[in-house]
């Protein structure tokens, strides 16, 4: 029987137009997709995410939740924008999606038992904003080819994968 893969398995970053800008797998023995499949996966996920963000059974009640009735005034505040798909779990993996305020999506694939995915996601976002956004040679919306980002990401993921 094949050894069970543990920890963080893969990271995919999708830009706000649905294009794949970064993908990386961690650990050996994972099935590899070809580049075209990755692009299709990113585009499809982007579409599905947009649909899930529109699925909202409480649309009519959204504004009422933010109405203050104690003073008689009605204050309409803007409701939180729907976040769309956040977590998807299957038998073999767990997918966590983090959508930044600028519309970039980070998809972290982990095994189903992985704890503290939020923390890992936060750190990945930190690394992205440090080593990609502060790099003078990175062009927005384009594929990420930053050596320091690769290096820091690899060492961080190795650290959390080895700690289990």
């Amino acid at each position: 029987m094949e050894k069970l893969r543990l920890g963080v398995l893969a990271l995919i970053v999708i830009n706000k137009a649905g294009g794949l800008i970064y993908n990386r797998t961690f650990g050996e023995g994972l099935n590899q997709l070809n580049t075209n499949d990755y692009l299709v996966l990113a585009g499809t996920f982007h579409g599905v995410h947009a649909i899930t963000a529109r699925l909202n059974p409480f649309k009519g009640q959204q504004y009422q939740q933010h109405t203050l009735s104690s003073t008689g005034e009605t204050i309409l505040s803007r409701p939180e924008p729907p976040s769309g798909l956040e977590v998807m779990e299957s038998e073999n993996f767990r997918l966590q999606c983090f959508n930044t305020l600028t519309g970039i999506k980070f998809l972290l694939f982990t095994d189903t038992m992985q704890a503290n995915v939020d923390v890992a996601m936060r750190k990945v976002y930190d690394l992205y904003s440090d080593y990609v956004m502060k790099n003078p040679f990175y062009q927005l919306e384009m594929p990420v080819r930053c050596e320091t980002f690769d290096r820091k990401l690899n060492s961080y993921i190795r650290e959390i994968n080895n700690s289990r």
């Binding site: 080593y131 790099n135 050596e147 320091t148």
Partner: peptide
């Protein structure tokens, strides 16, 4: 610290 030089400019050091 945050600079990654692209491969086609490998002689560059900021």
């Amino acid at each position: 610290r945050y600079v990654s030089v692209p491969r086609d400019m490998s002689q560059l050091n900021c």
